[in-house]
């Protein structure tokens, strides 16, 4: 897969504060790429630099081969940007809104007419064509704003927190829409601090904190690279004492870092070792007459990854300070 968005050492400094501290990114064509991070991590700053709205203090990025520093005009033609806090013009109708942006991209009257019809159908607002933008619900405005970013058929979509402030139904609709766009061949870069939202959607993610990319790749890739060991969930037959005894047995083993019981009575252990080791552990447990009902690695969860990555980062930061 060729990279359509490439960043090399992007740095942005605001009055001495480092908002983005040297970011390298490579986003392949047709991906849905998630920028994950807490508020203030620098996601918005990164996206705004890619959208040519902010000039990097140093470093550069290319989108579809055009440099955001040297050729922002060419970049603007291939990107569609939806800012975090997007506005709507109060005295405009829905079709006029899209017509205006169509004119901004130099589309002719016939092109604009076709585009407005197509896009309103895509974002499911065809019935609202003559409604005033201000009268739309938040979710509809969000979809209209997404449609505005599509008027010139961009290759890359940069979406900053597109699902913030949406109710669950609108979120599902938005997710469907983004999948739809991916199937149309768009590359989508999306930032969010709501992790489950990205997990289902993204083909790869970058975990961002304090202006740095801590890890990037597909979710399972990052999981494998980061994990010192694996988290195993084990269900044991029997009453409270039985389970507690089993937990103690697991905890006593040298290849187990930790063992704890969760609310549902399952045992969760931090295991230092690979799959062969995990098989050996299971065999040993059965030899010790522990009635194991189920034994499985805990599903890789973006939230967990995120916590793990940012924890480590805290540890590093603490270490350097000490």
């Amino acid at each position: 897969m060729t990279a359509i968005v490439e960043a090399h050492g992007l740095v942005k400094r605001y009055n001495g504060t480092l908002a983005v501290a040297g970011v390298d990114l490579a986003i392949g064509e047709g991906e849905i790429f998630g920028l994950v991070g807490p508020n203030g991590a620098g996601k918005t700053t990164m996206l705004r630099m890619l959208a040519t709205l902010l000039e990097p203090t140093s470093g550069d990025a290319e989108i579809a081969g055009a440099s955001i520093r040297r050729n922002p005009q060419a970049v603007r033609r291939v990107i569609g940007f939806m800012p975090d806090a997007f506005g709507v013009y109060d005295d405009m109708k829905v079709w006029e809104y899209l017509d205006f942006f169509g004119r901004c991209y130099g589309l002719g009257p016939a092109q604009r007419k076709r585009m407005i019809g197509d896009l309103l159908e895509l974002v499911d607002l065809a019935a609202k064509r003559d409604a005033y933008v201000l009268s739309l619900s938040r979710g509809m405005q969000q979809r209209l704003c997404l449609a505005h970013a599509l008027v010139h058929d961009p290759q890359v979509l940069l979406l900053d927190e597109p699902a913030s402030g949406l109710d669950p139904r609108a979120r599902v609709e938005l997710r469907e829409l983004l999948r739809e766009l991916r199937s149309l061949g768009k590359t989508i870069v999306i930032s969010s601090h709501i992790l489950p939202e990205l997990e289902e959607l993204c083909t790869s993610v970058a975990i961002v904190d304090r202006g740095r990319v801590l890890a990037s790749g597909t979710i399972s890739d990052i999981g494998q690279r980061l994990r010192v060991g694996e988290v195993l969930r084990i269900k044991v037959l029997g009453d409270e004492d039985r389970v507690e005894a089993a937990r103690a047995w697991f905890e006593g083993r040298s290849d187990v870092a930790s063992a704890s019981r969760d609310g549902s009575g399952e045992i969760e252990i931090g295991f230092r070792g690979d799959e062969t080791g995990a098989a050996a552990l299971l065999a040993a447990a059965i030899r010790s007459k522990i009635p194991v009902v189920s034994y499985s690695p805990a599903a890789t969860d973006l939230q967990e990854l995120f916590l793990q990555v940012t924890d480590r980062d805290d540890a590093v930061a603490d270490g350097t300070q000490a």
Binding site: C104, G106, Q111, D118, L150, L177
Partner: peptide
């Protein structure tokens, strides 16, 4: 919605060259 997507020919749209006058016109309109 995939039926809609199938009908859409978003890729086929060509962006014409852009002049300053069309920008001014867009804003004025």
């Amino acid at each position: 919605m995939s039926a809609v997507a199938a009908r859409l020919s978003l890729r086929g749209r060509r962006i014409p060259s852009f002049r300053i006058t069309s920008g001014i016109t867009a804003i004025i309109v």
